[in-house]
Design a protein around this nucleic acid. Structure first.
Lengths: 228, 228
DNA sequence: CCGAAAAAGATAGTATTACTATCATAAAGA
DNA sequence: TCTTTATGATAGTAATACTATCTTTTTCGG
């Protein structure tokens, strides 16, 4: 059974809510496909409009500019991920089990039957890896943050940090470890794929290596004696 | 005493070597200042030309486009850092001392008397934090990598990985830990400054917190029992 | 010191990008 | 059915990302 979910997004992310119309949903779906294909730098509203069969002005009615659209997509990704985390850890008792699940989720090794707007989840995951930090690596990060644009990312980070604290209440850096895990899950994948000498994995081997590295990193930190 | 050094850069990074002329050095110096001030997204060759007192065409004689110029600057940053690492660890015997130094270097807590082209090192460090991953987060990463554009970054990563191996030869992920350290030294600083809830540090406290977190992360991993 | 070559300045021009504005038409809702 | 609302169609502007050309300096080898 497929479950269709709709996520409520921060209105600052859009001009008109794209989830409320066919055109809006088309914009999301095709922009994900197109950014995945040609990369965010070469992606333009003109090309997107052509692909969808609408006009540039039509896209601008939904999103202020392409950076906002990317922020929308990435934020949506994090929102879905937090939802999945809640859903999947719901009946887990042990913090250890939850941590293992978090790592699996972040490395995209959890298959689920959730469908969000018929978006290609694999493409979305690839975009999150390559383009995921661009929404905040800007000069207007503070303004965007004041508008709560990054709240889903921060919420997810906080939720994982709480699991770390459940596992070991005396660990002093739960949030930094959480953001490290979030970023590195993606970066190690990117490096493995494109710059493999920055990792201990080779391009073609299965992704389990990244998984083991992240587990080792997290558990080493959480299990270390406070003195060290 | 100030020591002036010149670093040999990969010719694929430029059209004409900027270190060989006054105009070229001006381009480097002012582009760092300008990217620091307005961010890479808003930075254009036109604005830079106006600032320097030359023309757009003049800048294009040195760099193919602004992305290449950024790649040049960031690559140069990593080259300097590797040089500093070699220089500073030269007479250190213990791997532990070297690791501590690496972390200090990456968090910009080593003052040195090296001058590279009279560039503002603080601005350069800030740029490396905010813009440092943009050179490779593109669709043309593989082509750029084939042209060896990221070699200095990869060399530095490998050198740090070797220190980790010196410290504990049985640690299985030295390169991934090295790239994690490299990225996180900058990301934690960025988060602390702009999105502090993603860290365990507050905006105004001194940077030593990041230092302690990174040390804890690295030594926990390197000291963990292989079984864990 | 002279002449050739290379670098820099000056100016112009093009294609694309990133928008904004306006008006007509189609759909949807009260 | 009337009225709002969304979309389509078209146009237009300012800025960006370049390329081309021609002239004037500067540099450097003989």
């Amino acid at each position: 059974m497929e479950l269709q979910l709709q996520v409520k997004m921060n209105p600052h992310l859009y001009v008109r809510d794209p989830e409320q119309s066919v055109l809006g949903r088309n914009i999301i779906r095709h922009s994900i496909a197109m950014i995945h294909k040609i990369g965010f730098e070469d992606f333009t509203f003109k090309k997107l409009a052509l692909e969808i069969g609408t006009t540039e002005a039509g896209i601008y009615r939904y999103f202020e500019n392409k950076h906002r659209l990317l922020t929308y997509i990435i934020t949506w990704f994090w929102t879905c991920l937090e939802y999945q985390l809640m859903y999947q850890t719901n009946n887990l008792k042990e913090p250890r089990e939850k941590i293992d699940l978090v790592i699996k989720l972040l490395t995209f090794q959890v298959t689920d039957e959730l469908v969000f707007q018929h978006v290609d989840k694999n493409q979305l995951y690839q975009i999150a890896i390559t383009e995921g930090s661009k929404p905040y690596l800007t000069k207007h990060v503070t303004e965007d943050n004041n508008n709560q644009l990054f709240k889903p990312y921060k919420d997810l980070c906080a939720r994982i940090a709480n699991i770390f604290t459940d596992y070991n209440a005396s660990y002093p850096y739960p949030r930094s470890l959480s953001s490290t895990l979030l970023e590195m899950a993606h970066y190690q994948y990117f490096f493995k794929t494109h710059l493999p000498s920055l990792t201990d994995f080779s391009r073609d081997e299965p992704d389990a290596g990244i998984n083991r590295f992240l587990s080792h990193l997290v558990y080493s930190s959480l299990n270390a004696t406070p003195a060290s």
